[in-house]
């Protein structure tokens, strides 16, 4: 397929040799080029990314400019629509296509940002707990239990309400309530890796504990962490949409998809596209991320076999 040829061009070494002779990186590339779900998810995600980054630059549309005489225009495929406003306009006469386009940036920024925050917190705690064990492990387990017991969305709402909503606050709040997965996975991976001979060898050659964690342990947990990461991005995006929908996330006029749904809620009978279009956008983004994440999980599974071709 097109994808395959494209990848073969980019990474020729991955397809040259016999399997046993491939570097680990090439092995992964070979496996991923055979995984349908991964390819689909990744392609879709790349398209969305390009949209988000270049769309606003190339297309000269504004999500903020209001024209009160052109309110609630239907999309181009409905009666009364026009090509000037492909997705119609919202209640303030703003170009809905532009709003959804710019909203992509918000969702991606918050999704990846929050997942990063969660990853940093969770992996640090998890690796320390797994490596040092003892009381460190006890303390971290206690923290984990607390985190799991707290109702995430409620807590996020409260904190945002107290501090005041902004993109940065939302990123940190969502990240700070979603690090449990990272912790559990990195902790068990660390415990497994810690018992392997090459870690013992590293301390025999004089590497400090810090060096061992950074150079030996964490890099070998990447494959598992990256899978959790992609799944958490999807979760974070949906979380942000929920918060904005409830009014404690992104504030108007910034076009977060959740906010668009909240604003269009009243008009559900007569202008349903106000809700359907951002809903489709959310769905597409999260599905692509999830498929990519599922694919990654299959690819990095040490028991999965590479097929030759």
């Amino acid at each position: 397929m097109i994808f395959k040829t494209f990848i073969k061009r980019l990474f020729p070494r991955s397809f040259d040799n016999e399997i046993y002779n491939l570097r680990p990186k090439d092995l992964i590339i070979r496996k991923s080029s055979n995984h349908g779900g991964f390819k689909f998810g990744l392609s879709l995600l790349i398209i969305i990314f390009l949209f988000a980054i270049f769309g606003p630059i190339i297309l000269d549309v504004s999500p903020y400019e209001q024209d009160l005489t052109k309110r609630l225009l239907p999309p181009v495929w409905k009666e009364g629509g026009s090509w000037e406003y492909i997705f119609g306009t919202d209640g303030n006469g703003r170009d809905y296509f532009a709003r959804i386009l710019y909203g992509t940036r918000i969702s991606l920024t918050i999704g990846f940002g929050a997942a990063c925050v969660g990853m940093i917190i969770g992996v640090s705690l998890g690796v320390c707990a797994g490596y040092f064990g003892g009381w460190v492990d006890q303390v971290v387990s206690y923290l984990l239990t607390c985190q799991l017991a707290l109702p995430g969305l409620l807590l996020a709402m409260t904190i945002v309400f107290l501090i005041g909503p902004s993109i940065t606050v939302v990123i940190f709040v969502i990240g700070a309530t979603h690090w449990a997965f990272f912790l559990v996975v990195s902790r068990s991976a660390t415990q497994k890796i810690k018992s392997l001979d090459y870690v013992t060898a590293a301390s025999a050659i004089g590497a400090s504990k810090f060096q061992i964690i950074i150079r030996d342990i964490i890099p070998n947990t990447f494959s598992q962490i990256i899978v959790i990461f992609t799944l958490e991005v999807g979760i974070a995006i949906l979380n942000e949409a929920s918060l904005s929908f409830l009014g404690v996330g992104i504030q108007p006029p910034t076009p977060s998809w959740g906010l668009l749904i909240a604003e269009g809620k009243e008009a559900i009978f007569f202008q349903p596209w106000l809700i359907i279009l951002p809903g489709i956008a959310l769905f597409t983004l999260v599905v692509s991320i999830n498929m990519m994440g599922d694919g990654l999980r299959d690819i990095t599974d040490p028991n999965s076999k590479v097929s030759e071709e």
Binding site: P24, T200, A201, A204, I205, G206
Partner: peptide, 20 residues
Amino acid sequence: RAKIIQPVFQDPYSTLNPIH
């Protein structure tokens, strides 16, 4: 100590870090 005494382990498949 590292310059005086060094170990060699049993399992060749776990004695080297696979990403190095």
